[in-house]
Measured scan of single mutants.
Amino acid sequence: CHSECLGNCSQPDDPTKCVACRNFYLDGRCVETCPPPYYHFQDWRCVNFSFCQDLHHKCKNSRRQGCHQYVIHNNKCIPECPSGYTMNSSNLLCTPCLGPCPKVCHLLEGEKTIDSVTSAQELRGCTVINGSLIINIRGGNNLAAELEANLGLIEEISGYLKIRRSYALVSLSFFRKLRLIRGETLEIGNYSFYALDNQNLRQLWDWSKHNLTITQGKLFFHYNPKLCLSEIHKMEEVSGTKGRQERNDIALKTNGDQASCENELLKFSYIRTSFDKILLRWEPYWPPDFRDLLGFMLFYKEAPYQNVTEFDGQDACGSNSWTVVDIDPPLRSNDPKSQNHPGWLMRGLKPWTQYAIFVKTLVTFSDERRTYGAKSDIIYVQTDATNPSVPLDPISVSNSSSQIILKWKPPSDPNGNITHYLVFWERQAEDSELFELDYCLKGLKLPSRTWSPPFESEDSQKHNQSEYEDSAGECCSCPKTDSQILKELEESSFRKTFEDYLHNVVFVPRKT
């Protein structure tokens, strides 16, 4: 048989008469490798580009789960590009990614509803959504962080984005990388972005840091009482949809009607710091009717980097990364020049730590249904340095008659930039024990000054392991946590139920 035959053949030295091919099969003959313009397919066939392209389009058009959109890589027609490569849609070739590779997620039936953290986790790592997304989240724990972890990498949506009755959302900033909504599939009414009845939605994105392009379709905003109209108009300008909307697409009466839409800028007039305090004062603000001013709200939190936005980490279910302080308005003076500047002394802060701070007014709604208010920009203030805590785990070892090696770990709280350490030492008198000992005694162990690591005695271990207080009263049991108490109650309830079950099964009433 021919060298490319495997198993047997019907005619000697003829690659077209093989029972099976050793390498690849091409047009009725066995070959060692697939010549151009053919590609290896499933490690035994040679196919042309049209064959591989037909497989790709067949799966793409069917949208069946589990099928493969075949691509070409290293002269092979394979189910998908290997790690580190992405497909070129024009020629199906796998090309190296520039940075992290995109991950295209194809949605069944063309859309997916995100109504819980669990459903959001199914899209973790996706960068391109081939379909439409509907966000409908009523509640949950730590929602802002969970949504950002699972949806934060999405850069492109081919269909539309719909935010509907998501009472738990305060902001859409968890879509931190969303840059493009194509609108290839539109919501009824030709809408590519749809926001309806979101009672706590206050911000779409921080438009000073976020760009969003909507290729096709219109915007729809109705019944978002805490979303200011200025935020919607800003989205029109940034996304390129200005002029597409009709009169009733953006409701003037049901958007922002319960919001404090600040239209003035508060400026800080005085800032002073110490290692654990920050004193702030800002310019006074009074609405047209000074009785509408209820006070100020001061927001602050630790910020290692200057990239904080107002609604980071917030949701309507209680999660809030900001510390909020309510401040009463100052006494009002008739003389504008003698107006008191409101302020606040922030206490209990960490030394040498940068804080993000902003302040906003708290006002009631005027009778004319106009909203007044003022808010400052987010500023960054760093507390002063102070003395560091003591170095940890000092170790001293003498390696000769004239040297001592000293080692330690950095302090747990540096409280500033540590530039150097101060080492103090003092000579001590020799131990009298060394002169009084009889060095001729056998088995004498000389006193040693070398360091030995501390260890816990058996008594201390027994005390720590004991669940009861000892007789001397030195140790006591740790208080039980809520989960331990709940577990004990469940076990007790189970024992009672099981005992009742045994009584009912074992003891049967005697027939009379």
Rank of each mutant, 00 (worst) to 15 (best):
N211G: 09
C261T: 07
I214L: 08
F268G: 00
D206H: 03
K375L: 15
I157M: 11
Y305Q: 00
N150M: 10
Y270S: 02
N130L: 13
P287D: 04
L362R: 02
R247P: 07
H106P: 09
W205T: 02
G189Y: 15
W322R: 01
S319K: 10
Y285F: 13
H341V: 06
F193G: 01
R281I: 08
G110Q: 12
D393W: 15
L406T: 05
K177S: 13
T215N: 14
H233P: 07
L279D: 02
S230K: 11
F220Q: 13
S173L: 08
N200S: 06
L161G: 00
L212F: 11
Q216F: 12
R369I: 08
F311S: 14
T215K: 04
R247Y: 10
K301D: 07
Q121R: 14
I232P: 12
E236S: 08
D249W: 07
L229T: 03
P342Q: 06
K177L: 07
R176L: 05
L266P: 01
L186T: 13
I188D: 15
P351Q: 04
D312H: 06
Y167K: 15
N136R: 13
Q199W: 14
P342H: 07
S171I: 01
D367A: 05
I188A: 15
L161D: 00
L169K: 01
S398G: 10
P388T: 01
L229Q: 14
N320S: 08
K407L: 07
D289V: 06
N198R: 00
A144P: 04
Y355F: 07
G183K: 01
M346D: 00
L279F: 13
L362N: 01
K301V: 03
N142S: 12
G140D: 08
Y380P: 00
E236F: 07
P225G: 15
N150T: 09
I134D: 00
F365V: 04
L143A: 03
T273S: 08
L293R: 07
H106Q: 10
Y300M: 10
L298T: 04
P329V: 07
T118L: 05
E122S: 15
V128D: 07
S166A: 05
L178V: 05
E122Y: 12
L108D: 01
A374G: 11
D292R: 12
F175Q: 00
S389Q: 08
K277T: 06
T127I: 10
V363G: 15
A259S: 08
R124V: 06
R165S: 15
T371R: 09
R247L: 12
S401N: 15
G256W: 04
S274F: 12
K407M: 15
E368R: 14
L229I: 00
Q306N: 05
I214R: 08
I135S: 00
R281Y: 02
S260G: 05
E156S: 04
N263M: 08
G313A: 12
S116A: 06
P351I: 06
G152C: 10
H222W: 06
D335V: 05
K234C: 10
I232T: 13
G217E: 01
F268P: 03
L123D: 00
S208R: 08
F268V: 08
R347I: 06
W344F: 11
A120H: 09
P287Q: 12
S192D: 01
P304Q: 11
L201K: 00
L180R: 06
D249S: 06
I135F: 09
P304L: 06
F220D: 11
L151G: 00
E155T: 10
A303V: 13
D257F: 05
I134C: 14
W344V: 08
L212K: 01
R164L: 13
E122A: 15
D206K: 14
E155I: 15
G125Y: 05
D276M: 14
S396D: 15
L172I: 15
E109K: 15
W352C: 04
I134S: 10
L123R: 01
N190C: 07
L178P: 00
P288H: 11
C317F: 10
T127L: 10
W322F: 12
D367L: 08
Y380F: 09
S338Q: 11
L161S: 00
D292H: 13
F358T: 08
N387S: 11
S402W: 11
Y285S: 07
A120V: 04
G240S: 15
P329L: 14
G373W: 15
E262A: 15
K218P: 10
C228Q: 07
R347W: 12
T185M: 03
L265E: 14
G131T: 01
I232G: 01
M235F: 13
N307P: 07
N211L: 12
T241R: 11
S400T: 07
K242C: 08
I188R: 14
K253E: 14
L406M: 02
L293C: 07
F299W: 05
N334H: 10
K360N: 07
M297D: 12
S389P: 03
E155N: 03
P288I: 06
L294Q: 03
L161E: 00
K242D: 08
I327P: 04
L362S: 15
S321F: 07
N136Q: 02
D289C: 14
F193K: 00
S398Y: 12
S389H: 13
E283L: 09
E122R: 09
K209S: 05
P329E: 14
N307F: 04
I232A: 10
D289A: 10
C105T: 00
I379F: 06
S400N: 07
D377Q: 03
Q245V: 15
D367T: 09
F290N: 03
Q258P: 13
S171F: 15
I327N: 01
L180P: 00
R244D: 10
I181M: 02
Q306F: 09
N141Y: 12
K253N: 07
N190H: 04
L227N: 01
S269K: 12
K162E: 03
S171L: 01
V324R: 12
T353G: 04
S402L: 13
P391I: 05
S274L: 13
T127K: 15
I250L: 05
Q403L: 10
R281L: 07
N307Y: 02
N224P: 00
E148P: 13
F296P: 06
V117L: 14
N307V: 09
F175R: 00
G373N: 03
F193R: 00
I137S: 01
K226E: 08
E122T: 05
T386M: 08
P225S: 04
D115A: 05
L196W: 15
A356T: 05
G110V: 02
N334M: 04
G373P: 04
Q382C: 04
